[in-house]
Design a protein around this nucleic acid. Structure first.
Length: 612
RNA sequence: GGCUCCGUAGCUCAGCUGGAUAGAGCAACUGACUUCUAAUCAGUAGGUCUCAGGUUCGAAUCCUGACGGAGUCACCA
């Protein structure tokens, strides 16, 4: 918006000098590189063809016109095809004033449109881990960004609270739990239940190992195994079949699933009991991450959905039925495959549930956009799902978006639950916070404030380190999470950005005599211009983040702004400025930087401390 | 094998709607705190932007093809 006037004047310049109408899109003003003189640059190569003139000639003519006719332009220089314009103090003062007066700077007006963002969506048999953290941060951040972009946002998750995995932990608790509860043992509910899931796997492995010694097992091995497969490899691959056919524990777990589906009272009671423990644990973790949901969907409610959709698809001729009565869709025209949507026994599959759930959500909220935050291993699933929705002519089909993100790897490689390398979410938060604690003690800056305030500040710092480390990476990229680096508080980190904010706050506390009269400020410094140029770009950054469902741009913006402020702070005196007017200008500039940092970081789910 | 995504400094990442000599941080080395919070700043060093073609006045960025890595192609979820 600040550059609008300039762009208009440039168009006028081309019109007056060359009788050439240029589109705005061709007139992109970019900040001049630091090693050259000037504030904004326009590339004149683009007009060489139209005008049949040399780039330098064009630059000089346009630059001269601008210097003569546009009061914002102080001077210009031309280097090859680059016209660099230096702007007057008035431009910068005006820019600061405009940002200062806009309380919601960067945000867009309400659109009156609803968007639903799904994220987290855990299973109830295991606690949350590092992968969930990336998911949650992305989903939460996108929801905040969409709000800032003027949408009404509904945050949701679908909780996978049923199925064989859930029955495994239930069964293990029933058999081996001895009636213990989380509160008795002092173990957080989700971890408590997760431990029984692990216990089930252990007991099952023991049972399996024993069975492998039986003559039945050897017979199967000799009959079924290919010659070049070792016994060990064979039984590794045979595990599922053993579970389904021979395992006692497997049989019991499957029976429990049947009981659950039949609504057996005792099973339901056990299920509800254990799930309530899990939810209590999840809620603690969500609280620590500072995220919340507006609406929860449970798979136990939705897993039967989709039946109507199957019928509708058949009626529309979108689906077809095979002789064995299973139902399919042919997606080969869209470059995909044939996909099953209903088993021959009439039960629905995963994708059918998703069709039903999407329809339910649309009926519930009427959202025109629905964002699914799910790892990229499900890219194909969502391609198929969205294509089916289009063919079913669902009104919301065009607003579906898979916010796909890459897996989080450790420096040692992939996280594997079997190998116990999964990084637990709660442990991780404990770790970054205790690291923040140690750094803070070393600094001693906040020793004066109350214990409670200290704890709060330290929590904010630790969480900022963790969150920023993850959210700064583009979603679609696979990322390496080095626990050592994630607790760094220096350099390109969350605390570094918080520190810039804290510096502003500290200065503002000391500047009791704030006056906002700086209109006559003269000699705007390079560092001040850099800050204002960055601040001017904030609305565009935000818009792009909302458009692409990508918070990483905001993270990088906040870092760059903080970095630029640290430099400004180091080079230029604020409270000890040469004149009162310069002081006012710098205080206002600092305040606006702090506000923008806080705004941007809030969109990332990161809180700012007032001191640190 | 088909399809999708990724490949930039020793490591972690920016930059990708084409623009000047490709940027940060970490790690290494050097300097700056009696002065607004040094979780800071300044500097040194570090690059065949995986490779090969093409489009263009101009390519890390766009197109094609290789190579390398990951994911996926279940009557699992």
């Amino acid at each position: 918006m600040f550059l609008l006037q300039l762009t208009q004047d440039l168009r006028q310049a081309f019109k007056s000098v060359y009788q050439l109408e240029v589109e705005e899109s061709k007139l992109t003003l970019s900040p001049t590189k630091k090693e050259f003189e000037g504030d904004f640059t326009i590339v004149t190569f683009a007009f060489v063809k139209d005008l049949k003139l040399g780039p330098e000639q064009i630059g000089n003519a346009i630059g001269q016109y601008m210097a003569d006719h546009c009061s914002l332009v102080k001077s210009y220089n031309v280097i090859k095809g680059f016209l660099n314009l230096e702007l007057s103090d008035a431009f910068w003062i005006d820019a600061l004033q405009k940002i200062l007066s806009d309380e919601k700077y960067g945000e867009q007006a309400p659109k009156g449109e609803k968007v639903m963002v799904e994220f987290s969506s855990p299973n109830t048999n295991k606690p949350l881990h590092l992968g969930h953290i990336r998911n949650i941060l992305l989903g939460w951040s996108c929801s905040k960004i969409l709000e800032a972009a003027g949408f009404d946002v509904v945050r949701t998750q679908i909780i996978n609270d049923r199925g064989i995995a859930v029955c495994k932990s239930m069964l293990a608790w029933q058999k081996f739990g001895g009636g213990k509860t989380p509160s008795e043992t002092g173990i957080k509910g989700d971890h408590f239940v997760g431990d029984f899931y692990v216990l089930f796997e252990q007991k099952f492995q023991e049972e399996y190992a024993e069975w492998q010694q039986t003559s039945l097992a050897s017979t199967i091995f000799s009959q079924r195994a290919d010659l070049d497969v070792t016994e060990k490899e064979f039984f590794k691959a045979y595990k599922n079949e053993y579970f389904n056919q021979f395992s006692t524990l497997g049989k019991e777990a499957k029976q429990m699933l049947l009981d659950w589906e039949a609504g057996d009272e005792a099973t339901m009671a056990l299920w509800k009991q254990m799930n309530s423990w899990v939810y209590e644990g999840f809620n603690t973790t969500y609280d620590r991450l500072q995220v919340k949901f507006d609406k929860l969907y449970y798979e136990s409610d939705t897993y039967i959905l989709g039946k109507n959709a199957v019928q509708k698809g058949l009626d529309l001729g979108v689906f077809y039925q095979k002789e064995d009565s299973s139902i399919w869709i042919d997606l080969t025209e869209a470059g995909m495959d044939h996909k099953l949507v209903q088993r021959r026994d009439g039960t629905s599959v995963y994708i059918t549930q998703d069709i039903g759930t999407a329809q339910l959500r649309y009926d519930d909220f009427g959202a025109t956009k629905m964002i699914y935050t799910v790892a990229d291993e499900q890219d194909y699933h969502f391609q198929v799902l969205f294509e089916i929705m289009k063919r079913l002519k669902e009104p919301f089909a065009d607003g579906l978006f898979h916010l796909s993100y890459g897996m989080v790897d450790l420096p040692t490689g992939k996280m594997k639950s079997r190998e116990g390398t999964v990084v637990d979410a709660d442990d991780l938060m404990d770790e970054v916070i205790s690291e923040a604690q140690a750094s803070s003690e070393e600094r001693g800056e906040i020793a004066e404030v109350s214990q409670e305030e200290q704890a709060e500040i330290i929590r904010k710092i630790g969480m900022a380190a963790l969150k920023f480390f993850i959210i700064k990476v583009q979603p679609k990229k696979r990322m390496v999470f080095d626990p050592k680096e994630s607790v760094d508080m220096q350099g390109q980190t969350g605390p570094y950005i918080q520190n810039a904010y804290v510096r502003v706050k500290s200065v503002l506390r000391k500047a009791s005599d704030k006056k906002e009269e700086f209109a006559s400020y003269e000699g705007v410094q390079a560092q001040e211009k850099s800050l204002l140029t960055l601040l001017q770009s904030y609305p565009d950054i935000l818009e792009a983040a909302a458009r692409d469902y990508d918070p990483s741009g905001i993270a990088n913006f906040c870092y760059t702004l903080a970095k630029e402020y640290h430099k400004f702070y180091h080079d230029i005196r604020i409270l000890g400025a040469e004149t009162e007017i310069a002081k006012s200008f710098r205080l206002a500039l600092s305040a606006v930087v702090a506000r923008t940092l806080q705004h941007g970081m809030d969109l990332l789910g990161i809180e700012m401390p007032e001191r640190m």
